[in-house]
Design a protein around this nucleic acid. Sequence first.
DNA 1: GCGACGCGTAAGTATATCCTTACGCGTCAG
DNA 2: CTGACGCGTAAGGATATACTTACGCGTCGC
Lengths: 104, 104
Amino acid sequence: MTYAKTGWTALADPTRRTIFERLVERPCSVSELASALPVSRPAVSQHLKVLKDAGLVADTPSGKHRIYRVDPAGLAALRTELDQFWSKTLAAYKLAVEQPPEEQ
Amino acid sequence: MTYAKTGWTALADPTRRTIFERLVERPCSVSELASALPVSRPAVSQHLKVLKDAGLVADTPSGKHRIYRVDPAGLAALRTELDQFWSKTLAAYKLAVEQPPEEQ
DNA sequence: GCGACGCGTAAGTATATCCTTACGCGTCAG
DNA sequence: CTGACGCGTAAGGATATACTTACGCGTCGC
């Protein structure tokens, strides 16, 4: 079942995460990304499509090139989700601390 | 299993993310998790193993049962990584705003 | 116009992933 | 001790994923 990809799925693949980390540093074109990776250029294109579908990157045509950059909105969405995990986990721990003398 | 699993890979699968979200709410046993999911109990065990290898959950034998709970350390590591993405993205944007003129 | 460059997409293939059933080990009730 | 329960793991199969090469389209320099 190939449902809509979420940011988690998009960042799961190591190659895709490497691409994303590079775009976090600065915007980049496809061939520039591919030249720094051990995979072919079309593979990079396919990864960028996944990242774009997940809302994590955006592209801007610039003449012959196409510049990809991180989309802050998608990244913020992931951050929000993770923060909810975090606060809920802390809340559960606070409740659990009532009984054992576990402390950090 | 090509490489060592990271938290991103662990949370990529929808079923696994559902399990994790449930553990975020409160600790749970394997069969309790399985009864609330459309997959078999062994499948849940395998997912929990992945989450455990990624450092996202921890297990505690409790008599006949085995209680799984979220490991705050692993979650914090993911949060840190994501925060770095975020701050770097913001920094890149700040630079782009301050120095908009680009060579052509 | 014409060729080169950059990029996206299609088609095909190898591998990884997720799920299932079957089975073995430890724990608790009787 | 014996049987039932909870769980992990092995083995196998169906699907998804990531990569490759081949090709088509738009843009730029000559």
